[in-house]
């Protein structure tokens, strides 16, 4: 589904991604862990098409097309979803309105008619229930006045409504209490399917107790330096990152 080949990217004048390789198959769940500042959010942003990063080398193909040439909205229409590490508040833009506009923009891109209003309402009510969000949240401005945990839940709610092919979730578990973590994990698990893949950035093994990843990667110094199965996450939790860094350090 996603193939990242030797990706180099700068933020400002600094090179952050330094030859990153990653391949995600259809239906797979990949977890990315790594020290603060190692480039995890940069990777997520570059994949979603945020301004302010310069790709200086490498390629990314998504479902067979070159991803990096596309505008952020085009990536979304092709099925990319980014769950933000720090979801922002957008006063005056209604949550439901945003989702409806997003779905209709995608329908238009696909050459399909606008979504049926009644059916749309049913869908968002169902998904809100799945995320145990009060209906009142639907009519509020995007994230405005939401608690940190509520914002993260709203991200997963949006993902559930938009039904992407590849969900990139950047520390969706950070700042969640245990109950919210379970809700978010259940929301993600409900969306797991054979034709949907996940790239989950996290610092904590505990999320992976609920969402079993197929692969775990360590991102450090702008590259994936180690990959493994879910046992790697346990090992990282117990031992930290130093041993991986030592193990992979190139002599000299």
């Amino acid at each position: 589904m996603l193939n990242i080949d030797n990706l180099h990217a700068n933020a400002g004048d600094t090179e952050i991604l330094k030859g990153l390789n990653l391949s995600i198959g259809t239906g797979e769940v990949h977890a990315i862990m790594g020290p603060n500042g190692s480039g995890k959010s940069t990777l997520a942003h570059v994949l979603a098409g945020r301004d302010g990063y310069e790709v200086t080398g490498g390629t990314v193909t998504f479902l067979g097309t070159e991803l990096l040439d596309m505008l952020p909205e085009e990536r979304a229409w092709h099925g990319i979803f980014l769950g933000f590490q720090y979801p922002i508040e957008i006063p005056g833009v209604n949550n439901t309105y945003l989702l409806k506009a997003a779905l209709n923009a995608r329908q238009k891109f696909r050459g399909e008619p606008e979504i049926d209003a009644a059916q749309f309402l049913r869908v968002i009510k169902d998904k809100a229930r799945l995320m145990q969000m009060e209906q009142s949240f639907l009519n509020r401005s995007v994230n405005e006045g939401f608690s940190g945990g509520e914002k993260k839940r709203n991200e997963i709610f949006q993902m559930a409504v938009l039904e992407p092919r590849l969900a990139i979730l950047d520390e969706t578990d950070s700042g969640l209490d245990i109950d919210a973590l379970k809700i978010v994990a259940a929301g993600i698990n409900a969306l797991r399917s054979e034709d949907r893949s996940f790239l989950i950035v996290t610092h904590y093994q505990r999320l992976l107790d609920y969402i079993e990843p197929d692969f775990v990667h360590v991102l450090a110094g702008g590259r994936i330096i180690k990959s493994g199965d879910k046992s790697l996450a346990l090992e990282l939790e117990a031992k930290g990152y130093d041993w991986v860094l030592d193990e992979t350090a190139t002599p000299g």
Partner: peptide
Amino acid sequence: SMFYLRARGIP
């Protein structure tokens, strides 16, 4: 805000 909306698929 612009990026957030566009990342959701708003042109």
